[in-house]
């Protein structure tokens, strides 16, 4: 068992989400940076479906109530155990009473703390993920919460330290055409893929709000709502695109110009307000 001493700006329980329920208006949710979450689970020998903690901008402090094996991945939060620096991306043994502290990462936004056995919580529609948009799943973590450890370990952990690609400053995300590219002037695609984009405030697990060049539309009629996916880049009338992340609404009423490649969604989820990025076809 782990006790939450501090949760930082937002810490939630996440797993691989709840696919298969979109037809009743439930989005998938799940870890925003899935490759980092998967790595954390692998490092402690968990099933890929095990739940873990997604910390946002550090600030998380956890006390082990018995000896547990943990691993921290994702945004490179300065890490310490009882005040002694500890490595990221490696299995760490926390003795009973030890306190793990994640500081503010210098780059990136979301860090993942996996514990061997997985975090147990009541599953909702088959998932322990907190969907911040609809409110499904466990509540966000708060000081005093006790996290039960589940039985979701499978393998003996064998990896000592994993080589990982750190979140980049000003990453280039690959994009593919979205379903409504033809609603835009051809110059909009050029503007999208040649300009510098800024992540603005008001960005969260639902999506990133971007500011950059004007994306001129060819059609001004209203689009009947249609389905969304993570990575969809939707352009509302004010011209500031929204890049949707894990807790995106199931449908949206503005045209989707482009979609970020699935392989780059983890990098997108590491961007924070004030960060810059580029998009490349």
């Amino acid at each position: 068992m782990l006790t939450v001493l501090a949760a930082g700006p937002l810490a939630t329980i996440q797993d691989r989400g709840r696919p298969g329920w979109a037809s009743i208006g439930v989005t998938r949710s799940g870890a925003a940076d899935r490759p980092s979450a998967d790595l954390a689970n692998r490092l402690v020998g968990n099933d890929a479906d095990a739940a873990l903690v997604e910390a946002t901008a550090g600030g998380l402090r956890l006390r082990a109530e018995r000896t547990v094996l943990v691993a921290v991945t994702g945004a490179p939060a300065p890490l310490d155990v009882d005040g002694r620096p500890a490595p990221l991306d490696a299995p760490l043994t926390l003795r009973a009473g030890a306190v793990l502290t994640l500081g503010m990462p210098p780059v990136g936004l979301r860090s993942y703390v996996a514990v061997r056995g997985g975090v147990d919580a009541a599953p909702v529609l088959g998932s322990r993920s907190t969907d911040t948009l609809s409110g499904l799943g466990p509540a966000a973590l708060a000081p005093g919460d006790r996290l039960q450890v589940g039985g979701f370990a499978c393998d003996e952990p064998v990896v000592d330290v994993a080589p990982v690609r750190r979140p980049l400053v000003a990453p280039v995300l690959r994009i593919l055409p979205g379903p409504r590219r033809d609603w835009f002037d051809p110059a909009a695609w050029t503007a999208l893929t040649s300009g510098d984009w800024l992540v603005t405030a008001d960005s969260d697990r639902v999506g990133l709000r971007l500011s950059g060049p004007e994306l001129v539309r060819q059609r001004d009629d209203e689009l009947p709502s249609e389905g969304l996916v993570p990575g969809a880049l939707q352009v509302p009338p004010d011209g500031a695109p929204v890049l949707f992340l894990a807790d995106h609404p199931v449908t949206g009423g503005y045209p989707v110009l482009a979609v970020v490649a699935t392989a780059d969604l983890g990098a997108a989820a590491q961007l924070r307000p004030g960060d810059r990025l580029r998009l490349r076809a």
């Binding site: 696919p19 298969g20 329920w21 979109a22 037809s23 998938r28 379903p179 009947p224 709502s225 249609e226 389905g227 969304l228 996916v229 199931v250 449908t251």
Partner: peptide
């Protein structure tokens, strides 16, 4: 096929 999102004029196939 993971998800189907029926909407007013379209069906999204995930």
């Amino acid at each position: 096929q993971v998800d189907l999102v029926a909407a007013a004029r379209t069906v999204l196939v995930v």
